[in-house]
């Protein structure tokens, strides 16, 4: 198992297309699960948690492509994805706290009479 953790780590050899397909499928499935959760759950916090799941799936696809093409651009972009995810979490949770104070509920439907 030790050699799984890549003693020599910087892109030791090229990855095959078949292996890349595995990683991309996991990424797509994770994105879909996040989408199902975002559509079915009615708790605001869980809905934002599901958007984080979709971010994570996008990050996995980026890292897999970075590994396949043997350059670092994908990983650099994942840093940016993490930044946006952190900013989104901070703002979304502040909004959730604000809304919870107004209605004493986390339900998305508590705000269904908003206009516009």
């Amino acid at each position: 198992m030790v050699d799984l953790l890549l003693a020599q780590s910087a892109f030791p050899e090229a990855m095959s297309q078949g292996v890349l397909a595995h990683y991309l499928f996991v990424s797509a499935a994770m994105f879909t699960l996040g989408l199902v959760g975002f559509l079915t759950r009615r708790n605001l916090i869980i809905m934002f948690l599901c958007t984080e799941m979709m971010f994570q799936a996008a990050g996995l696809a980026l890292v897999a492509f970075s590994r396949y093409h043997l350059n670092y651009d994908g990983q650099t972009f994942v840093i940016f994805v993490l930044t946006v995810a952190a900013a989104e979490a901070a703002l979304a949770l502040a909004l959730v706290v604000f809304l919870f104070r107004k209605r004493d509920s986390l339900s998305a439907e508590a705000w269904s009479e908003l206009k516009g």
């Binding site: 990683y23 984080e52 890292v63 970075s66 990983q75 993490l82």
Partner: peptide, 29 residues
């Protein structure tokens, strides 16, 4: 997912993911 990043030879991103996501964002949640 951080484990999958390790398999993809992206150690820095794996540990950044654990620190930022599991350590900071999810604790805020």
């Amino acid at each position: 997912t951080a484990g999958l990043y390790l398999l993809l030879a992206a150690e820095f991103m794996a540990f950044a993911l654990i620190i930022i996501y599991a350590g900071a964002i999810l604790i805020t949640y």
